[in-house]
Design a protein around this nucleic acid. Structure first.
Lengths: 316, 316
DNA sequence: CTGTTAGCGCGTTCAC
DNA sequence: GTGAACGCGCTAACAG
């Protein structure tokens, strides 16, 4: 009853041919007589045989698997990137092993080790601040970083300062003078420092007044910071992420303030709850796609890769 | 330079012993002289050798991999379950291949086929309405369904009607008489029909008046339905999911209605944005955990499994 | 041109 | 502590 997994050899016996003939049939080699092919195919269908990718991988010295290490499963941004990656990888015949680093370098190391054991062909790694000490050298030519750069490594990054610039320019154009900012601690080099510094630079350039507060990535943080940062005088607020914006907007709404809020991420949820908010699209899905493409190219050409900075945009 | 993957054989040669000795060392067999063991271990460390799980799996006839097929990567509920599963699976030495069905039975079939090729040990499948025609027989003893039952299959389901009952009882206790409902089309048997029917039954039991509207799972739908369903007279509203509640609350807030809203899911986001809302915890994380445990037990004991219905709760 | 035999890839296991 | 067989599919070389 428990139809134990059939093997190529079994199929060969059942259809009265040699192992290799079955293999040829499976791999659609034209060098098999049609009659034979059909007989073998019939047997395969009848017994529901599926060749073992494990054996194939062993033989081919090549697992068609990639590892994806995200920081957090519930990051909306990474989610969108992953979705694009999974779909595309699937098309290319790859499967993905998913892991979560939880921003913990130790966990990252462990995960990389597992992926090494599995002989995955490549890794897509969502970078985070604490990972700078992790040695990625063994992966140099089969790893693509997302959201973070490292010399000598392929990467796809978002245009953090460009995104802030877009928002600042827009506020300048609409005549704002007072522009505040809610962001993330500068220990986070991208979402944190880069966006904050871009804000500071923009203030100088456009002559904006306004204050800034930095916290963590949670909406709670957005709320708390907004509470102390904003008052009746506040004209405009830029949030480093949509999540922060969601928190800040709660405070704004509760106090009935009139503030022009804009943020970065362009999450569907934010667009739904607060359509009046301008949010920059960083291109998460595209980032995932490009990262995967890079990775696949790097298989064939070690020189491929490079550091791609994705353009951001305001349009829908 | 390209330190190609070393094999057990290489290590054996480098340390001047036989393949099997290296294998014994790796597997911590006590039958190796300490001196030899240390020499081999030194070589392994020096060259950074990692045994191939692929080869091991082929030999052992057993891949320590499970497949997880979720409906949508961005489902907060599934996300929480997955997170629990990944962490626990990792502890047990398993890795997970993740796939997204997008509620499409065809995609589900394809994914199962891939998992079959990979010879995964088991599958955790997040059920959905359109999947009834998909033949799961070959997976009968190595698959656990979540959020959906099927005769003869192991499953972990949420207590849909129990959750609604909790909310209805609470409203009854606080003296409500007019209770409306926003749900999901009955084609969805669990989130849709079960919760809706529980609402109808509750109305009869407690003598509630109130109307209901069904739509899809989006917050847009929640909003739209609330717009037509609620008015100044509305006392209380039950939403089949937190997402719907989020949509409905937007309408409620915009119109300044006073409605006691409750829902099912207990998402952190909802708790943050609308702490006044009562939301039932269905136990997503626990569901994931239990599903994984079932699956692992089923490896050893075909008879394990069964249909577990998770209790829901109101407390934090 | 069609199909078979043999050996590989890599870690495990068992008899010697 | 070791060689050899094994698990499964691929493929070069070879026979009909």
């Amino acid at each position: 009853m428990n139809k134990k997994n059939l093997t190529l050899k079994d199929i060969a016996a059942l259809s009265g041919v040699g192992k290799s003939t079955v293999s040829l049939v499976i791999n659609k080699s034209p060098r098999v007589k049609t009659a034979t092919r059909e007989r073998v195919e019939a047997v395969i269908r009848e017994y529901g045989y599926t060749p073992s990718l494990t054996a194939r991988a062993l033989r081919a010295q090549r697992e068609k698997i990639i590892g994806i290490i995200m920081t957090r499963l519930d990051s909306a941004a990474e989610n969108r990137a992953i979705r694009a990656i999974l779909a595309e990888a699937y098309q290319a015949g790859y499967d993905a092993i998913l892991q979560e680093s939880m921003l913990d370098p130790r966990r990252l190391e462990e995960h990389l080790h597992v992926l090494e054991s599995r002989r995955v062909e490549g890794v897509i790694l969502f970078g985070f601040s604490g990972m700078d000490d992790v040695d990625l050298t063994p992966w140099q030519h089969r790893l693509v970083l997302i959201a973070r750069q490292r010399p000598g490594f392929a990467s796809v990054t978002y245009d953090d300062s460009g995104a802030v610039d877009l928002l600042m320019a827009r506020l300048h154009a609409s005549g704002r003078r007072n522009v505040s900012f809610i962001g993330v601690d500068e220990q986070d080099h991208t979402t944190g420092r880069a966006r904050y510094q871009a804000y500071l630079a923009g203030c100088k350039r456009y002559g904006f007044s306004g204050a800034a507060r930095l916290g963590d990535l949670s909406y709670q943080s957005g709320f708390t910071l907004a509470e102390t940062l904003l008052d009746q005088e506040s004209e405009a607020l830029i949030c480093a992420t949509d999540t922060l914006a969601l928190g800040a907007l709660k405070s704004i709404q509760a106090r009935g303030l009139q503030v022009d809020v804009s943020s970065i991420g362009s999450t569907p949820l934010l667009a739904f709850l607060h359509p009046e908010v301008t949010s920059v699209r960083l291109g998460f899905a595209k980032a995932g796609l490009r990262a995967l493409h890079m990775l696949l190219e790097m298989q064939h050409d070690k020189a491929a890769g490079g550091q791609l900075v994705l353009p951001c945009s305001l349009e829908d």
